[in-house]
């Protein structure tokens, strides 16, 4: 009996220490991946020029990249050329969501750097961003034809991300 207890105790400590060891080598940065492989949430979001609403129906039948951006966000400028490149590709719709921004500034931003967005909407108070699990911009979400979320990009899109997206949609 005593022997069993001794073995159990030793094993508990061994287990704890090995978990500690494993954790040391893990990436501690948090990314919200809980939405990946889930269906795109229902949404109804007003277009940038207030003319109409966009819903899930507008992004059916095609790959869609939803991109949250703002003119006050410095990293958004960095990723912009990649968005421009992506806008050249076929069978990808880019839905831009202008996040907590002022309209004139947003317009200047697009006229300066170009407009890569097939659809452009705005999220004035940021509420829509929560539906998509956004916690800081820029963030982008790649959605397939069946409206499944297949990838999430936190932070500015990189060249690797570009290649990745191209590979997926082809």
């Amino acid at each position: 009996m005593q022997k069993i207890i001794k073995i159990i105790i030793s094993f508990i400590f061994l287990f704890v220490i090995s978990i500690f060891y494993i954790s040391l080598t893990r990436d501690t940065n948090y990314n919200t991946s809980s939405l990946i492989n889930k269906e795109t949430p229902e949404f109804k979001i007003i277009s940038f020029n207030d003319s109409n609403y966009y819903t899930r129906d507008d992004i059916k039948n095609n790959y869609t990249l939803i991109n949250f951006w703002a003119s006050w966000c410095a990293p958004c400028r960095i990723e912009h050329p990649i968005l421009m490149k992506l806008s050249q590709t076929k069978n990808l719709v880019i839905l831009g969501i202008n996040f907590k921004d002022k309209e004139p500034q947003a317009k200047t931003f697009l006229s300066e750097l170009g407009n890569p967005y097939d659809l452009l909407a705005k999220d004035k108070n940021g509420k829509h961003s929560v539906k998509f699990g956004i916690y800081g911009i820029p963030e982008s979400i790649l959605i397939n034809k069946e409206l499944m979320i297949i990838q999430k990009f936190v932070g500015p899109l990189s060249d690797d991300d570009y290649n990745n997206i191209i590979k997926i949609i082809e």
Partner: peptide, 10 residues
């Protein structure tokens, strides 16, 4: 932060 404000609204 922006994030906290948004969450509060939601």
């Amino acid at each position: 932060s922006d994030f906290a404000q948004t969450i509060k609204l939601v």
